[in-house]
């Protein structure tokens, strides 16, 4: 239990650090926020000064930092320069399609990655291994924007099997594949080496010596152990996935946080960029916590590591 408590407490400095990094980075951005906000439209000095005071930009750095942190805690990151709306509200409206896409990508990535990885790892250096590992490598080398375009062209335009735009489930298929393919490559290679490693362990020899059937040895004894390293990597994989979503949304012209981020950067809409980055990190931290929980479920050594019993 102390382990979970420690993990929960560990989140606080991470969030704090993120907010600090974000604040510091945006302090250094060249250009005056107020003129950016005006969108380059010339305004009188008085209007500028009023805006500045309204945004609290006339206060000293430390004070602004404190108020930034205070507002960050309650999830308030100010107003978008462009849309003139609270950015938190904008993000809330757009978060759903991105989460759907990430989930779809995760399903494709995990499924395909596990399949290729297990097939390859069972008989290392066989032809099946060579084929699977080449497919995994190819998946990891595919630019996701290009694979997205190919999918659109082949399945959307030429064959017209699935809709390219829209918000239903069928419109999610192609983007999920494009997002997941990239992740599947990495994941498959991890699963493969993990299985090969597990099959070399002494406990596998014990399982053979017990007279167990090969299917049971692989399916129970090897797989359960082999899944531990890939699961620990799931957190990092997820950050790849979010990155992939940014690109995929762009290719498929889907609404979502990725599209929002690229637009915000191009428009120099700083509060929106700031908020998006903070939210992304928040999701990442949360997912990592979940991964830790999963990890404890699958590996008994973690649960008891902190309670010396011997």
């Amino acid at each position: 239990m102390a382990f979970f408590l420690r993990r929960l407490l560990g989140i606080i400095p991470i969030l704090f650090l993120t907010w600090t990094v974000v604040f510091v980075v945006f302090e250094f951005i060249p250009g005056d926020p107020v003129s950016l906000m005006m969108g380059g439209v010339p305004a009188s000095d008085e209007v500028m000064a009023n805006e500045r005071a309204r945004l609290g930009l006339d206060k000293p750095v430390l004070e602004r930092y404190a108020s930034f942190l205070g507002r960050a805690v309650v999830g308030d990151f100010g107003e978008s320069y462009k849309a003139r709306q609270p950015v938190t509200q904008m993000i809330r409206e757009q978060i759903r399609p991105t989460l759907e896409l990430a989930a779809g990508g995760l399903v494709v990535g995990l499924g395909l990655g596990l399949l290729l990885g297990v097939l390859a790892g069972l008989k290392p250096n066989s032809w099946l291994d060579t084929v699977c590992i080449f497919l995994a490598l190819a998946g990891g080398s595919l630019p996701s924007f290009w694979s997205g375009m190919l999918l659109i062209y082949v399945f959307g335009t030429v064959l017209a099997w699935v809709p390219i735009v829209g918000s239903g489930f069928s419109a999610l298929i192609l983007p999920s594949i494009a997002t997941g393919l990239f992740m599947a490559g990495d994941f498959a290679r991890l699963v493969r080496s993990s299985i090969i490693d597990a099959m070399k362990q002494n406990y596998i020899r014990t399982a053979y010596a017990k007279g167990l059937a090969p299917i049971r040895i692989v399916g129970k004894h090897a797989l359960r152990n082999a899944l531990i390293p890939p699961i620990t990597m799931l957190g990092i994989q997820l950050s790849t996935l979010i990155g992939g979503a940014v690109v995929t949304e762009n290719v498929f012209a889907r609404p979502g946080l990725g599209t929002m981020l690229v637009d915000a950067v191009l428009n120099k809409d700083m509060p929106l960029v700031q908020a998006l980055i903070v939210y992304t990190t928040g999701v990442y931290v949360l997912v990592n916590l979940l991964v830790d929980l999963l990890y404890v479920l699958i590996d008994p050594r973690i649960k008891y590591a902190r309670t010396p019993s011997r």
Binding site: I14, V21, G243, T281
Partner: peptide, 24 residues
Amino acid sequence: RIIDVLLGFPSIVLAIMVVAVLGV
């Protein structure tokens, strides 16, 4: 710890953030 935080940003998002600062 700081590295762990930075790893939390998807690298493409981190790169986009830097481009936001430096310009296109």
